Computed example of a mutant assay.
Amino acid sequence: MIIGAIEAGGTKFVCGIGNEHGEILDRVSFPTERPEETTARAAAYFEDKNIEALGVGSFGPLDLDPGSGTYGHVTTTPKPGWANYDLLGHLKKKLNVPAGFDTDVNAAAFGEARWGAARGLDSCVYYTVGTGIGVGVYVGGNRVHGLVHPEGGHVPMRRHPDDDFAGACPYHGDCLEGMAAGPALEKRWGQGGDSLPEDHPAWEIEAHYLAEAVTGAILLLSPKKVILGGGVMHQSQLFPLIRSKVARNLNGYVASSVLDDLDAYIVPPGLGDNAGLAGSLALGIEAAQG
Rank of each mutant, 00 (worst) to 15 (best):
E212R: 01
R34T: 12
C15H: 01
T75N: 02
V139G: 08
V125T: 13
N251R: 12
N96E: 15
L259K: 10
I266P: 02
G57K: 01
G89F: 05
I242M: 09
H145G: 13
Y138Q: 03
G57R: 02
E112C: 07
G81W: 09
E186P: 00
V144R: 12
G72K: 00
S256K: 10
I266R: 07
V129P: 00
G16D: 00
D65H: 14
G178M: 02
V144Y: 11
E286W: 11
I24M: 11
H172T: 05
P98G: 09
G132V: 04
T77W: 03
P170Y: 10
G167Y: 02
V144Q: 10
L241T: 03
I24G: 03
R158K: 09
E198S: 13
I205A: 10
S123A: 12
L228A: 11
Y265K: 10
G252V: 10
A40E: 12
G4Y: 09
N50D: 14
E37C: 00
S123H: 14
P197L: 02
R114H: 15
V129N: 04
F165K: 02
K187I: 02
P197Y: 02
D63Q: 06
V254F: 15
V135A: 12
G192I: 01
E177T: 07
V56C: 09
S222P: 01
A53K: 12
V139M: 15
F30S: 03
N84A: 12
P201C: 11
N19D: 15
G4V: 08
G252S: 09
L185P: 00
T39P: 00
H172I: 04
A202M: 07
K49M: 12
L64N: 07
V129W: 08
L54M: 13
D194F: 12
E52F: 01
A107W: 04
H90Y: 05
G178I: 03
Q237M: 15
Y127Q: 08
K225N: 07
P269K: 10
T131C: 05
Y265E: 04
